[in-house]
């Protein structure tokens, strides 16, 4: 069996941040969002795909994203998500928070 690169489970609460970050690039449907995250993280971060859709719906309820049904280039109906102003604000806040945590963890883990 080929060696499978170990994959990190997403830290709880980071999914929303990653989705929002992804949507700053362009409007996308759910599958594209999942692929985008995996690709950019060199397949390290793998979204548990089923949870993506409830998360998207939750984010829509909170007003961070909005959605629209459109046709894909292959003429299939798909729901496209776009980030809202509130979503950008939320992203900035979560990113700051994340940086602080990473920095803190990094400091702890540095060899003394």
């Amino acid at each position: 069996m080929p060696a499978v690169p170990s994959r990190a489970e997403l830290l709880p609460g980071t999914l929303a941040m990653l989705v929002l970050k992804t949507l700053t690039v362009d409007t996308m449907h759910g599958y594209a969002i999942a692929q985008h995250i995996e690709r950019l993280s060199n397949d390290v971060l793998r979204v548990q795909e089923g949870t993506l859709y409830p998360a998207l719906q939750m984010m829509e309820v909170k007003g961070w994203v909005k959605s629209e049904w459109k046709l894909t280039p292959t003429k299939r109906r798909a729901r496209y998500y776009a980030i809202t102003a509130a979503g950008r604000k939320q992203l900035a806040q979560e990113a700051r928070e994340f940086d602080r945590v990473v920095e803190a963890v990094g400091r702890v883990m540095q060899p003394a």
């Binding site: 449907h29 999942a34 859709y53 829509e60 309820v61 109906r77 798909a78 729901r79």
Partner: peptide
């Protein structure tokens, strides 16, 4: 208010939302 509206809409048209998410997942 918008959140409330979406919740309410969801509750009222649950069948449609279910269908939509179903479609989204099938597409995925």
């Amino acid at each position: 208010m918008r959140g409330l509206w979406i919740r309410l809409r969801y509750y009222l048209f649950r069948a449609r939302y279910d269908r939509e998410m179903e479609e989204e997942m099938r597409f995925h």
